[in-house]
Amino acid sequence: MQVEEFVLGNSWVHRLDPRVKIVVTLVFSVVVALNSHLEVTAISMILPFALIICARLDFGKVMLRLAIVNGFILFLWLFLPFTTPGETVYSIGPLSIQKEGVYQALLITLKSNSIILMVIALLSTSRIFTLVHAMSHLWVPDKLVHLFFFCFRYIHVIHEEYHRLVNAMKMRGFKPKTNMHTYRAYSYLVGMLLIRSFNRSKRILQAMKCRGFKRRFYILHHYEMKRFDYALAGSSLAFSILLMVAR
């Protein structure tokens, strides 16, 4: 499974304190999501674009990612321009395109992509384990942090197990079609994954107990805010506040 594909790299964006990354992304996302001006939203895209350029991410890959996640937005474009009441700018047969609808669809598209770019620029350039560690410093409940840690740890293991089972099915000549046999086969695949994982989780618990698990992970490496982290946190938050005031 190809995950964490933007993590590789050694730019200053990659090396930023993950706590700063999480806080800045959250504040920026909320400010952009709640704003309702086209111009302000367009300006907001400067920050994520600048960060992506500084992180020297593969631009093609970023665009591909954007194209994939814009499916839902495309769905809205099929409706909003036609159904929002307002001034008609163009009509094709029984359908008429409304100015207000186009405005709203465009606003949503820009907002959505601005936030997604910010998530790619800051969060996707850190490893999940690093972000989870940072969450434990940001008042996220311990249980939730542990849940993130274990869940991501075992996604890879279970993905491998899934592939083993799928390969076994393929070797026996399984071809998915729209019929009961296919659905039953997939169900047994999922059922088997659930049962094996349940049993695995019991072994994990035993292993944790054997090692004297005391409801916490002892972290050896601690983050230290450098001058640079303060500078980026300050300027990004200032930018977000400007966006908020500008509306």
Binding site: L147, F150, C151, Y154, F198, S201, M208
Partner: peptide, 11 residues
């Protein structure tokens, strides 16, 4: 219960 919930959520 934590490992169970975590591993099932990966499934």
């Amino acid at each position: 219960k934590l490992p169970e919930v975590a591993v099932l959520s990966s499934v």
